[in-house]
């Protein structure tokens, strides 16, 4: 398609953010620093750090309720160097629009200096994939406002003590879906396919991507792309959670890699309406990298410790389906016989 036809009029100034060429070129400055109160090995804290490291000093961050609110900013202290403001659980989309709209009006009217200001609004999977979905959808339609909505997905309402969300994987133990004597599995919903849903549902949106902080440079460069491309953008990050997933915090980085290598977390981006798989996901699709069995990923986590072999096989079948039957493998879950698959009784 002709991308130029899709380009809206972008009158707010855009930042120039060059791609980071390798780990050794990563900026030294920290804009989200030490002294937050997250768990040992918290991958989402790393996501916050890399997010603003990539964005730089002329950035404003809005944070909706969740771990990255409560654990990072406990009143009278903060870990943020750049300006930060709390927003409500379902408001990451609205907060981004309101902040960007405020700057746009003030700049146009000459009430403040006209300059690029990165507006990043983050939400967890509870705030983003559940409660805030409508507001995010609304935000991705307002092309006049430059901002990035980042969903850090630790696959549960982790801050309130690990309750099931629309983004919790099938069968996982949560405090709202415990493994019990009568019911081995209480959480039977399949994880929402957020990034593809938003990319497919918002044709004007110029950047939607998935990331994993285990690949720090890829991660930061996607943030830079989203912030400099113009208009509203969305990035979905899978964040291993040592508390809710129940694993040794030392393994956060490894579990991120395993999610990608097992094909459970496809890395892709839709940039100006062009879909591109990248990183290890691309390597798997091009046959340069073997897709690992999901067992290698699931069995490292206490939240799946109750799984039987049937459960693991079912999980594997659903993932295989992603790569063999989906209209766009790993991205768009349309095919004729998806529904024939049923969980084990």
């Amino acid at each position: 398609m002709d991308a130029k036809l899709q380009v809206p009029t972008l009158d707010s100034p855009l930042p120039v953010l060059e791609p980071i060429k390798g780990v050794k070129k990563a900026p030294l400055e920290e804009y989200f620093t030490s002294g937050h109160r997250t768990c040992q090995g918290c991958e989402s804290a790393l996501v916050m750090k890399l997010m603003v490291k990539a964005a730089g000093p002329r950035t404003v961050v809005l944070g909706s309720t969740g771990c990255m609110y409560v654990a990072n900013t406990t009143y009278y202290s903060t870990s943020w160097v750049v300006p930060w403001m709390h927003t409500q659980l379902g408001s990451s989309g609205s907060a981004a629009v309101g902040t960007a709209a405020g700057y746009r009006a003030l700049m146009r009217k000459g009430k403040i200096k006209r300059e690029p200001i990165n507006v990043i609004s983050f939400c967890g999977d509870g705030g983003g994939a559940d409660m805030g979905l409508s507001a995010i959808s609304g935000a991705l339609q307002h092309m006049d406002y430059n901002h990035l909505i980042l969903l850090y997905d630790n696959e549960s309402y982790a801050n309130t003590d690990i309750q099931a969300s629309g983004s919790t994987p099938y069968g996982a133990n949560t405090t709202f879906s415990p493994h019990g004597k009568a019911k081995r599995i209480l959480h039977k919903r399949w994880k929402k396919n957020m990034a593809a849903m938003l990319a497919a549902g918002h044709p004007e949106c110029r950047y939607v991507g998935t990331v994993c902080a285990s690949y720090a440079v890829d991660f930061m460069n996607r943030i830079r792309k989203a912030l400099s491309i113009g208009g509203p953008t969305f990035i979905h990050s899978l964040d291993p959670c040592p508390k809710g997933w129940d694993y040794d915090p030392m393994l956060s980085h490894e579990l991120g890699e395993l999610a990608v290598l097992a094909g459970i977390w496809p890395l892709f981006e839709v940039e100006q309406h062009q879909l591109r798989l990248y990183g290890k996901t691309r390597a798997i699709v091009e046959g340069r990298q073997k897709r690992l069995p999901v067992r290698d990923y699931l069995m490292k986590q206490g939240r799946f410790a109750h799984f039987t072999n049937d459960d693991i096989d079912y999980f594997q079948a659903k993932i295989d389906e992603m790569w063999t039957r989906w209209l766009i493998p790993g991205v768009l879950p349309f095919s004729t016989d998806v529904l024939n698959e049923r969980p084990p009784a």
Partner: peptide
Amino acid sequence: PARNPYFKK
């Protein structure tokens, strides 16, 4: 980096 002066680990 400067660090949160109120919460050390």
